[in-house]
Design a protein around this nucleic acid. Sequence first.
DNA 1: CTAGGGTTAG
Length: 593
Amino acid sequence: MWTSACSCRGIPRLQSSLVSLNNYYSALLHSQSSNPSKSRNTQLMRNPPPKVINLEDTLKVFDEMLHRCHLPSVVRFNQILGPLVKLKHYSEVIYSYKQMGLLGIVLNIYSLAIIINCYCHLNKMGFSLSVLGKFFKCGLEPDVTTLNTLINGFLLADRVTEATAIFSKMVEGGYCKPDVCTFNTLTKGLCIKGNNSGALQLLRKMEQFGDCKPDLVAYSTIIDSLCKDTLIVDAFNLLSEMITKGIAPDIITYNSLIHGVCRLGQWKEATRLLNEMVSRNIFPNLYTFNILVDSLCKEGMVVEAKSVVEIMIQRDIEPDTVTYNSLMDGYCLRGEMDEAREVFDLMVSKGSMVDAQSYNILMNGYCKHKKIDEAVTLFQEMSRKGLIPDTVIYNTLMNGFCKLGRIQDAQKLFFRMQAYGQFPDVVSYAVLLDGLCKSQQLDMAINLLKEMEGKKLDPDIVIYNIFMDYFCKAGKVEAARDLFCGLSSKGLHPDVKTYTIMISGFCNSGLISGAEKLLREMEEKGCLPSYVTYNTIVRALIHNNEMSRAMELIHQMVERGFCADASTMELIVDLLSQDKVDPALLPLIKQSF
DNA sequence: CTAGGGTTAG
């Protein structure tokens, strides 16, 4: 199906990267042959195997310890509960400590730090702070670790003011000086906000801060953030800098870089990085493979992704929920729902954790391909299995109903989710608003918008896109344009969809020059047109008989790896049959298939 | 026995 956005983008890249992809497999296999799992000599070269602990076993041991006549010391409890935090079993850890408290076990500074960290990750800073109060009640002094944990919690909750307040106290107070960890936590906070330059500045400041030399984590944090913003060149420059300073990259640094290049479809570069890391005796781990599988799937290359899964199994790396979820999503994207279902069933039969996200991916796939009944069945099934449908799941299902025009069913779900204690977010409102607008119920939509604002949920660019789209399609381009012009005063930036909606609006109102102006503007602002943008404007140009300009843009879009969609292609084929297309452009158009 | 960096969904 060359009409789908994904395969359209995937095809040209696939052709140009098939050769490098072969090298890529051999790089993965090579790392296996140089590292046979059965050989004892090379065993030492592997990354240290992760400790296998699970919730069930730990809780069994915990219960046993709790029922001994002579209670073990609090240290023993910390030793077994601490690792559960890394497995993200926050609520269970908190519950366990509560049980200990009931038996009169006195907690120490380590226990309290663990509990605070759990509340931080559950986004319950209020509870974190009350645990801090407990510190003082017990005559314990919080240390650097405790404060770093709190800073991290505030940053994760987007409460920057409180985070920096703690940092300032540490700097001024002097009794608890910030350390590398403090700085790295703040660096991460800046990265989350997309402030790479701020993060780099902090890195430089750190060097001036006594014995706080930036370490591997400091550099890796920023490298990852640069990669996420597709600033690959800057990321590699920072990598060179850290190596020059004698800090060697590790598996996490490489995973960030590999993810960065894969996201851009640079398979050849990914291959080079894989070879480079293996030559440094760093071997791809579960994260690495999951990144590869997911990136291939997102490019529509599920067959290749499946081969990578085979390779990881050969290498004794067991695919996990993340691996299967990515693969499932890859099939869903291509509309291969039977294959997606097969992966889901495989997960169930292998006893892998099927989580809410697994359900969501499959449900979303069914919804996108108009199989709402299958999605509803899954929804009922997950509830039966004790998995609580969260806001994301409800949004998916509501979206499924809205796209079928069944707004009332979506609204029923909207009420139901609140009755079951799930809070609608901006996405929930966006889904319903779009549904209402598309079914010409503007009054209802505006009421809902008011309700949303009453709940202190700020409309984002998606919400504005929905209304702009409504106005454009209703032939009220002026109203859409007013919204568009007001965006910056609301602190919102137009995205590709915003521009495409407006361009389409202008085109349909015969204002092609306005559309062309916007096309230039988006390029200037660094917002690259998508294949939808191109097709919209190309179609309009053809209808307007501006053939040479249309061909110019077709040329540009093919150059950028996009292809014409079905309706544009239909137009072109039609023109071809009427001999209205310059034969010199034929090879170009063919390429577009 | 506590803190900081890497993977998946709407």
